[in-house]
């Protein structure tokens, strides 16, 4: 993987090692699968959408970063 950016790499990649996906889990919504990160108190944030229907990707509720109630 090559990053092509004028930003300093130290700045971009700082904290890369501390990242973990331990809080992430998959939930099914209809035919789509959402990878969400558990934020506690029944809330979760969408990390990634896994679906074969391209129209699902146009659904704003499934966009990465959206908060969902579990």
């Amino acid at each position: 993987m090559i990053l092509y950016t004028p930003m300093q790499l130290e700045l971009v990649l700082e904290g890369l090692e501390e990242q973990s996906n331990a809080n992430q889990r998959e939930i099914n919504v209809g035919n789509a699968t959402l990878v969400v990160e558990d934020k506690g108190f029944g809330r979760a944030q969408v990390v990634r959408l896994i679906s074969t229907d391209p129209q699902d990707y146009l659904n704003p509720d499934f966009a990465p970063g959206t908060e969902v109630q579990l």
Binding site: M1, T5, L11, V12, L13, G15, L16, E18, Q19
Partner: peptide, 12 residues
Amino acid sequence: QVEGHLSLPPQN
């Protein structure tokens, strides 16, 4: 940043 094969740390 256009994120590719590596998920970047949250400050990005």
